[in-house]
Nucleic acid binder design. Structure first.
Length: 514
RNA sequence: GGGCCCGUAGCUCAGCGGUAGAGCAGCGGACUUUUAAUCCGAUGGUCGCGGGUUCGAUCCCCGCCGGGCCCCCCA
């Protein structure tokens, strides 16, 4: 007995059980049809359908009048089905669009038409015929020949309401795409966008590199890492939280312009702006300063946005984000002054703590560093007010352990953050290349970490050693592709721009194994 | 982690103390320009899971699982 026969039997038998569900009956009925097709010598899963054209292309061949001379050959999934005895209307969909088809007994013949009873919504078929327009004005293929390409065994979501259960929509993404093909747009937009990002960087002589995902010490960002285990080495590794430190090692090694679009992993909360794994774009540019970076970043954003979306003005919620350069700059200390806090007056964490508490920041407690407190105040009081695309500059050194100090004010660093819609969508700075300063900043981070700040950065001795060999002046920049796309595509949740967002595994069904 | 809400047929939803309902899909039938086709007929359920209250629970209570929204938080 072949595996296929066994599969058929099991499928049919499932419906014979007294407690069989509706789904099992539907599935059994479809398997029955499958068997009938085979009895009639029809292969329900042929290898191909030669010379098909995309439906969108076939539609463009529509004749001015119904002269029956536009021949088309299209294939796709049956998504609607209207049988009227000797004539059947159906809607066929492929990636390029959909079209109505008409199957007629007097055209395809009695024997062929009998197969219609063995087809149903969900199946893939291929058809060849001529275009005409019905009296209600719908472009339609009058089918001369048709063949089944794939028999579907499970029913599609309801044709009118589709798939609305948010849980099912993320657990069964394929059904969400079938029910709402416009959701496929985000996947396509992402591909186009990333392609434009690569083009821009490569036009500017950046080369794409790949750096390790498994790290002994995850660095380059304030975030909690995932851990994993390597069996052969019998030791734990971290999944990377940024690309930064390896890129700097490339610059130290002599590369001058590198970039990477790499998946990073952060073991933190899930929310409408946060994923636990996402594609981070970073680039590093030797012999460039902050002024050069500011110019390049604005041109970079404007170029890829324009080439992807055809405009520099994109709606987000109630706002229209205008990316036309030059963007305004907002000074970090100035923004604090506007909420009545002169940062220079609070040089220590102890001094700043009462300010944070007075602002009602519940998590502000003793032991946290000055940088963390500043960041908390900024996130609670300031960040959401930065709506139009702009550059936030002049950050305090406390929150920027990898950035070069501002020579005019050593308490601040040479850094920019791209802000839009009240969110950080891009971060860059003149990279700190003073190895001794870097060491002391790491040591400060380590102290905070020991004091309980789980997001404080770890001291990376190997990186410090590399830095001691000398890194030329370098500007670096990073941005989350998903966060960026979320705002550019006016998506309320970052999960909307991900094809398969993480879901908690469904609980095991009881009694499945007896 | 805190607050509010949801889980009933494959899908979309009613019902909310007295043995479970509709539409779509599927099944049988009629129908050769329909388009959410229509009409006739038959069928379909561990009411998320477990406990409790009750003569009796889909319904009330408790716990758990899964999900959503709002806080909080990491790009």
């Amino acid at each position: 007995m072949s595996a296929r026969d066994a599969g058929d039997k099991m499928g049919v038998m499932a419906a014979d059980e007294p407690s069989a569900s509706r789904l099992a009956e539907v599935r059994a009925a479809r398997i029955e049809k499958l068997a009938k097709l085979r009895e009639l010598g029809v292969d329900p899963y042929p290898s191909t359908f030669d010379d098909r054209q995309p439906i969108g292309e076939a539609r463009d061949q529509a004749p001015e009048q119904n002269n029956d001379d536009a021949e088309v050959r299209v294939a796709g999934r049956l998504i609607l089905w209207r049988r009227h005895g000797g004539s059947t209307f159906a809607n066929l969909r492929d990636q390029s669009g959909q079209i109505q088809i008409q199957l007629r007994r007097d055209v395809v013949g009695e024997e062929r038409y009998a197969l219609v009873k063995l087809l149903e919504v969900g199946d893939f078929i291929g058809v060849a015929g001529t275009l005409f327009t019905t009296k209600t004005g719908e472009l339609t293929v009058r089918v001369q020949e048709f063949s089944i390409l794939t028999k579907a065994l499970r029913p599609l979501p309801e044709k009118w309401h589709g798939l609305t259960d948010p849980e099912l929509r993320v657990r069964k993404r394929h059904l969400a795409f079938i029910a709402d093909p416009e959701e496929m747009q985000n996947v396509a937009t992402r591909a186009r966008f990333i392609s434009n990002v690569r083009s821009f960087l490569e036009d500017h002589d950046f080369i794409e590199v790949a750096t390790p995902v498994l790290e002994s010490i995850p660095g380059g960002a304030d975030a909690e890492p995932f851990t994993t285990h390597h069996n052969a080495l019998d030791r734990d590794f971290y999944l990377r939280i940024s690309l930064e430190l390896f890129h700097k090692r490339l610059i130290i090694g002599g590369f001058e312009r590198v970039y990477e679009i790499g998946r990073v992993f952060r073991n933190e909360g899930i929310g409408k702006e946060h994923l636990q794994d996402y594609d981070l774009l970073e680039f590093y540019w030797a012999y460039a300063d902050l002024a050069a970076l500011k110019e390049l970043v604005q041109r970079f954003y404007a170029t890829v946005i324009e080439s992807t979306f055809g405009t520099l003005k994109l709606p987000y919620g109630d706002d229209v984000l205008d990316f036309t350069p030059p963007w305004p700059e907002a000074d970090y200390f100035e923004l604090f002054r506007k909420i009545g806090v002169e940062l220079a007056d609070y040089p220590t964490a102890d001094a700043l703590l009462p300010v944070a508490q007075k602002l009602g920041i519940a998590d502000a407690k003793p032991g946290l560093g000055r940088g963390r407190l500043i960041d908390m105040i900024y996130k609670k009081e300031i960040r959401s007010t930065l709506v139009q695309p702009q550059l936030l500059t002049g950050h305090p050194v406390d929150i920027s352990p990898l950035a070069k100090r501002d020579p005019a004010d050593p308490a601040r660093v040479q850094r920019i953050q791209v802000m839009m819609a009240g969110s950080e969508v891009g971060n860059g700075f003149a990279e700190l290349n003073d190895p001794l300063d870097q060491r002391s900043r790491f040591e400060e981070q380590q102290r905070l970490r020991d004091a309980g700040d789980r997001e404080a950065q770890m001291l990376d001795e190997e990186f410090l050693e590399a830095l001691e060999y000398g890194m030329p002046p370098t500007a670096g920049f990073g941005v989350s592709i998903e966060r960026w796309l979320m705002y550019l595509t006016n998506s309320p949740s970052i999960r909307d721009v991900v094809a398969f967002p993480l879901v908690r595994p469904a609980p095991e069904k009881p009694n499945e194994s007896g």
